[in-house]
Design a protein around this nucleic acid. Sequence first.
DNA 1: GCCAACGTTGGC
DNA 2: GCCAACGTTGGC
Length: 154
Amino acid sequence: MALRYWLFKSEPGAYSYDDLANDGTAEWDGVRNYQARNLLRDDIKKGDGVLFYHSSTTNLAVIGTARVERSGYPDFTAWGTASEHPDSKSTPANPIWYMVDIRAEQRFPNPVSREAMKAASELGSMVLLKKGRLSVQPVTESEWQKICRMGGLT
DNA sequence: GCCAACGTTGGC
DNA sequence: GCCAACGTTGGC
């Protein structure tokens, strides 16, 4: 099974690439959107590449890469009332929401801004630019390579 | 802070 | 099952 590529959005005020780099590995919990859930549950596999994008900030950009450490498993943060994003309809017996674990990999020497992505003709069909609200989204291999090159990785 | 896009909810 | 109302996201 070939590796695939994804883009995860995060508000840096809530959880930044620095936070991920400090933590090493993070549980990508709290996604409460069915399209994104389906990707987390069915398609995002250990070893896949992740572009880490900062949203809702003055510096909209892909900051670096991460690697999927654990394929989809039930998002248990939906269960307890102590959770930051509870969903009483989701239970251990019938989980609704899923998450993966990711690990920080390489920070881009030059973060790739949204402006730069919009200006790059090869990136014109990126989901990020077409359907911006999806918080977990697929990226093609050529988009991955282009963005890594723009970011300054060899 | 505004507003467009779009996902979800709920009445019928 | 349709669709209007509503809420949220996120770029600007």
